[in-house]
Computed example of a mutant assay.
Amino acid sequence: MVLGRATVTGTSGRVGAAVARELEAAGWSVRGVDRAPGSPTGVVGDLRDRAVREAALDGAGVLVHAAALHAPHVGRVPDAKFRAVNVDATAALLDDAAKAGVRRVVYISSTSVYGHALVPVDRAVWVDESLRPRPRDIYDETKLAAEQLVAAGAVPAVTLRIARCFPEPPPVLAVRMLHRAVALSDVAAATVRAVAEESVTGTFNIAGRYPFTRADCRALYQDAAGLIAERAPAVAAAFRDRGWDLPRRIDRVYDSGAAAEALGYRADRDALDALREEG
């Protein structure tokens, strides 16, 4: 049974492609759009072009907007282009989506928008949606501006602030998966949930499965290795077997509790999964 047409932007990129695959597996007919060709991408073109936007949105009931300039582009791409791609094109896309009869928008943002608010003082920062974003660069500024456009738009929408989800060296990824990274498969699954839960709107963090609570913030900043050994002994043993040091300090923990309550999101993969895959 086909649930309807979903347009996904950025489908030649890592996140957009994973979302497209997951939506198709869930029964959606997906039309992908990206500036670069790719296997899930049916419309190749720049979203700053009205004709491209209209071709992408034709017949769509749902829009998942993942296309953007990202943090690695900071300093390499002029700020004006960041604003044109991440803000102006998003505004135009939202306007065209409303005109095309799209009934739901899911915007893929980033936990990076918290910016300077992620810097700890005497304890790890517990990062839930009540933490006020303090953008530190043009990427953060434009992603936050796009979030505001999505929230104010005519089409009911959800914004997903996704945690770090790109490949990293195994020792680094294993640590990140304890407190600030998320598996790509969990991002895709969360997006499908956000598409399906049509009565839900708002902004939600999407992060991994971590062994810590808010009460652990001071201990994580003072002796993370000791707390990891206590809360995740299998992870500590796996680090020891590989000759890797556990982190002495953890500076932040992302909290997906709101997404769990509103969307039924539960991360499937954690640090131990990353270690098993590393071998």
Rank of each mutant, 00 (worst) to 15 (best):
R5V: 15
A6Y: 03
T9P: 04
G10N: 06
T11K: 10
T11R: 08
S12I: 06
S12Y: 00
G13V: 13
V15T: 15
A18K: 01
V19Q: 04
E22S: 05
A26K: 02
R31D: 07
G32L: 09
V33M: 07
V33C: 14
R35V: 15
P37G: 14
G38L: 12
P40N: 09
V43Q: 08
D46S: 02
D46W: 02
R48E: 14
R50V: 15
A51F: 03
R53L: 08
A56E: 01
L57Y: 13
A67Q: 10
H70C: 07
A71H: 14
G75S: 13
R76I: 01
V77C: 08
V77E: 05
P78G: 13
P78H: 12
D79S: 13
A80S: 15
K81F: 15
R83S: 12
A84G: 00
A84E: 15
N86S: 07
D88C: 08
A89R: 00
A89M: 06
T90V: 12
T90K: 00
A91S: 15
L94A: 04
L94E: 03
K99C: 02
K99Y: 00
V106Q: 09
I108N: 05
I108E: 08
S109K: 07
T111C: 11
S112G: 01
V113G: 04
Y114L: 13
A117P: 03
A117F: 05
L118P: 03
V127Q: 08
V127S: 08
E129W: 12
S130T: 14
S130P: 00
S130V: 02
R132T: 15
I138A: 13
E141Q: 11
K143T: 13
A146D: 13
E147H: 05
E147N: 09
A151D: 12
G153Q: 05
V155C: 07
V155N: 09
P156V: 03
L160T: 03
L160N: 03
L160G: 01
R161L: 13
C165H: 14
P167Y: 12
P170Y: 09
P170D: 09
V172F: 03
V172D: 07
V175M: 06
M177T: 07
M177C: 09
M177W: 04
M177L: 11
L178G: 12
H179T: 14
V182H: 00
V187T: 06
A188N: 00
A189S: 15
T191H: 08
R193F: 06
A194Y: 07
V200L: 05
V200Q: 09
T201I: 03
I206S: 07
A207Y: 11
R209K: 14
T213R: 10
A215T: 02
R218Q: 15
R218M: 03
L220F: 08
L220P: 07
Q222A: 14
A225E: 10
G226D: 06
E230C: 06
A232Y: 06
P233F: 10
A236T: 07
F239G: 11
R240M: 02
G243D: 00
D245R: 11
R249H: 04
R249E: 12
R249S: 13
D251A: 15
R252I: 15
Y254L: 09
Y254N: 00
G257P: 01
A258I: 04
A259C: 02
A259K: 04
A262L: 00
R266G: 13
A271I: 03
D273P: 06
R276E: 11
E277C: 06
E277I: 07
